[in-house]
Computed example of a mutant assay.
Amino acid sequence: MAFTKSSVRDKEGRRNKDGAGSGTWDMIRTLLYAGLIAIFVRTFLFESFNIPSGSMIPTLLVGDYLFVAKYEYGYSRFSLPFSPDLFEGRIMSQVPHRGDVAVFRFTQDTSIDYIKRIVGLPGDHVQMRGGELYLNGTEVPRTDEGDSVASDENGTRMQGRRYEEALPGSAGHGPVAHQILKLTSDGPYNNTPDYVVPAGYFFAMGDNRDDSADSRFMGTEPEDLGFVPMQNLVGHAKFIFFSIDERHPLWQVWEWPVEIRWSRIVNWVH
């Protein structure tokens, strides 16, 4: 069969058109797969967070970026994007360990993420006496590591003492040694009642013990945290993947390299 020039051009044109269309669809399909994988990882495995406040100094600094493991505690509706009210409680629930640094939803407004250290588990007695932490009637040991100076999110200079504290282990885990900052031993939140953690809740505290709105605040004010329901857990903070000290305006691009805290990149959270 003979082909005219026009028929050959028509077939070539269709082949070219089909090829271009196939390439576009492949790109769309690749982007779709990548998006689905990203949603799966964020929902069930890891989610990234940044630190906006100084409540966890010296463990976490303002400008730290970290990954949080969501699978360790099981899943609640707060594990899902937009937190849809699909079910109550947790699926595949695991009780956290004392000493874990955890991300959870604020008790007064569950659209807000908090990050603190888990100090008390259900049934534990937690109390501050003269600035010292007592757990189940026993003083939590700490070692003085000397003077410490830090700045919070407002640039306020904080001068105090740094200690290494050793929280007792839980569920087969040994003691958890971590750093805390103490600015004072006075005030009502350094001398608290004996709090008993209810079933289904935990007691959270910031490592910056005198500049942290945590579970010691048990009142009815909008900023009071109180005991935190296990359902509010989002995940366990694992490691810092980036850190920046934003001392200069964003437009001063030449300052960006010196603002990066290179020594904190890829550091485990303890």
Rank of each mutant, 00 (worst) to 15 (best):
V234K: 04
Y71E: 02
S263Q: 10
N50S: 14
L167H: 00
P52S: 04
R209D: 03
E88T: 15
Y75M: 08
N136F: 09
A38M: 05
L32H: 06
K17F: 12
F46H: 05
G160F: 08
D152I: 03
W254P: 06
Y134P: 05
G89I: 12
S79A: 12
E164T: 13
F104R: 05
L32C: 14
W251T: 10
A2W: 14
Y201T: 02
T107R: 03
A177F: 04
G21Y: 10
G63S: 01
K116E: 02
G235Q: 03
M158L: 14
W254Y: 12
W262V: 13
E164H: 12
R162P: 01
N136L: 10
R29G: 02
S83F: 12
E164L: 13
I244Q: 05
V140P: 05
A237K: 02
A38C: 06
L233W: 02
R42D: 13
L167M: 01
R264I: 09
F46G: 00
A102G: 01
R29V: 08
S93K: 15
E88M: 12
R261A: 06
A177I: 06
D214L: 05
S185P: 03
R90H: 07
K11D: 08
M27P: 02
I37A: 13
L66S: 00
Y71W: 15
P168F: 00
G19K: 11
G235Y: 07
V95R: 11
T4I: 02
D147I: 01
N232V: 10
F82D: 06
L233E: 12
